[in-house]
Amino acid sequence: MIPAAAQPHHAPQHASATETHLADVWRVVVLNDPVNLMSYVVMVFKKVFGYSEQRARKHMLEVHEQGRSVVWTGVREQAEAHVFALQQWHLTAVLETETAS
């Protein structure tokens, strides 16, 4: 849908991640902001994660009402790719580990 020049880039490869970190469970967390529209956030969740309308909307409402939502959990490399994609859409997305919480 987007021409090659404007296609979202992939997250840079993390060359220095340790094997321990790669084996950990990482969470992708989206934080609230007062600017991005609810419909925009729902659309981004559907686009980035392939979520259904219902699931995307549930996460959007969590972000809006609770200030944050864990939108994805898994291995670090994939979590980084998701955070990068969300940041390309200008959502405030951060990575957390189980131990960081």
Binding site: M1, I2, P3, A6, D33, V35, N36, Y40, Q88, W89
Partner: peptide, 18 residues
Amino acid sequence: PNSEPILRACSAVRLRLR
């Protein structure tokens, strides 16, 4: 071709205006 880049750009500019 231009709808998604424009959507993201609007978001970036709005965040900067804030």
